[in-house]
Amino acid sequence: MKPAGFAYHDPQTVAEAVALLGRLENARLLAGGQSLMPMLAMRVAFPDHLIDLNRVEGLDGITVEQGVLRIGAMTRQRSIERSAAIREACPLMTEALTHVGHLQTRNRGTIGGSLCHLDPSAELVTVAAALDATIEVAGPEGQRDVAIADFPLGFMTPALAPEEMVVAIRIPLWPREHGYSFMEFARRHGDYAIVSAAALLVLDSAGRIARASVTLGGVGAAPLRVTTAETALVGEAPTPALFRAAAACCEGIEAMEDPQAPAWYRQRLAAVLTRRALERAWARATGEAA
């Protein structure tokens, strides 16, 4: 299980990295390497060139400004997990990160790497979808924004041209008093989830649901916003019955099947986790849970 040969490139700037991407055939970017390295070791990925982003300047960092959280693509998952600013402004992401791999992999793994690897079960992609994130992409022509909804083109395929790379993710923040929850089911702790659910709720002054986000990971090729559930929630007074009804929207969704789990089981998990996530988010929105 040793990687095949490749040429190693070690750019210092985004411009250099993009130029290398434009110039080299069959090149791949190496971010944290926590997903790519196993693929190389198992020889299921055969790049001729690896462009290492670990020494590229300016790709690392967390800022919260004017209601927007911006995280540089090479920011380590561990840094995000430990960021007080994120815990305060976007606690859904903090919660989701505790499910991402393990301490050692979070020390190396990056948010940009997770987004581009685009595993259907990846927690950070699900969170990005739940929060209507925007992906900042650099290319030969400069920078462009891609809405997270448009980012996955298909199974593990991001909407990036061969000469483009992700430089950051921007997340519009929810109001301070929103409720949130990230839940997932995996056979063992730290494994890729079979299904995950992210829920966000904002209550109005009358205690009704003013805004809702319901997102599922692991059911399809990309995270799925369950808009039917969101529609069912908004404007209603939160009750267990309402959450059950909203969660029931998940039972009919099309789910994938793999050796880990059949489709029917994923549908059932989707409904259960959605209900639990909504209940938890509600408890947090009302201050009844931490």
């Binding site: 299980m1 926590q34 390295m37 290492d52 050692q104 020390n107």
Partner: peptide, 25 residues
Amino acid sequence: EHGVCGACTVLLDDQPVRACLMFAV
């Protein structure tokens, strides 16, 4: 050698990482 078992854990700048998931360079 695929980043799951942790047997190769070393400290890199005092942080635990999996040495099979990094290149020496």
